[in-house]
């Protein structure tokens, strides 16, 4: 219990339209789960519902973090308790300096004022891992960042905030090969017994750098299939048609 993040029969609607139709998922600390599925199947909906985006209405079901009812909490409280979302489309906040924002967020997560020197030395270290130039800290939050820079910035925030459970929504989309390696390096550095991760992705590519323990497939608001890493490889080759049609995997072709 103390080490699990659990989603029970979750139903979520957007503007009265049901999107998630009974999702069940358990992520334990130390585990990496991948969530795959066709466009529009509800992956981002799940991610946003986990953090409590006001547009997404949970109509039934439960989300529990270490046994605590997440749905009872405001978004900021969820984050302070250790939930994190790396956004598919991180938004820009003009005029808010990166460094100020990060410091406020770190203080919030810690529940106290972080020592300024500690903060900056930690920041410098993480930026090095992610190959982020120092001058980004003087810039405004995500403003004018390229798609890839925004994604890297999400991982930087994740490394600074040290969550216990993190959802990464298509962090790999739009990254070039080098950036993908850098981002994976960051995630792998964080990976460990204190962190459970749910990676949402369309590509097996990132899973080669961050090996998942489990792979789940979401179709039309439901997890229709779960398995090991080989499921991702299989999807890469055959797409989703076989699942949507009959729920049975096509025979895995013999190697050679």
């Amino acid at each position: 219990m103390a080490d699990t993040f659990e989603i029970r029969d979750l139903h979520v609607s957007i503007e009265e339209k049901p999107i998630l139709k009974g999702v069940n998922l358990v992520v334990r600390k130390g585990e990496v789960h991948a969530l795959m599925g066709p466009n529009g199947s509800g992956k981002s909906t799940l991610a946003n519902a986990i953090l409590g985006h006001p547009k997404y209405t949970v109509t039934s079901g439960k989300i529990l973090m270490k046994g605590e009812d997440v749905l009872e909490m405001e978004t900021d409280e969820r984050a302070r308790k250790g939930l994190f979302l790396a956004f598919q489309y991180p938004c820009e906040v003009p005029g808010v300096r990166q460094s100020n924002f990060l410091r406020l967020a770190c203080n919030a997560r810690l529940g106290r004022e972080m020592d300024v020197t500690d903060f900056y030395s930690k920041l410098e270290e993480k930026m090095k891992v992610l190959d982020i130039d120092e001058k980004f800290m003087k810039r405004y939050l995500n403003e004018g960042f390229s798609g890839g820079e925004k994604k890297r910035n999400e991982i930087l925030q994740m490394m600074m905030l040290e969550p216990e459970f993190a959802v990464m929504d298509e962090t790999d989309s739009g990254l070039d090969i080098d950036a993908l390696k850098v981002v994976s390096r960051g995630v792998n550095e964080l990976r460990g017994p204190g962190l459970g991760i749910l990676i949402i992705t369309h590509y097996e590519r990132i899973l080669r750098y961050i090996n998942p323990d489990f792979v789940h497939i979401l179709v039309d608001g439901k997890i229709v299939k779960s398995g090991g890493p080989d499921l991702a490889a299989h999807l890469e080759e055959h797409g989703y048609d076989w699942i949507i049609k009959d729920g049975e995997p096509a025979p895995v072709p013999a190697k050679g």
């Binding site: 900021d76 984050a79 906040v93 808010v96 997560r109 905030l161």
Partner: peptide, 17 residues
């Protein structure tokens, strides 16, 4: 939502924006 998802309280988030 973005700022609050980082643990920042609503009124602080508004004032930041």
């Amino acid at each position: 939502f973005y700022l609050m998802s980082r643990g920042i309280k609503k009124e602080d988030a508004v004032s930041m924006i």
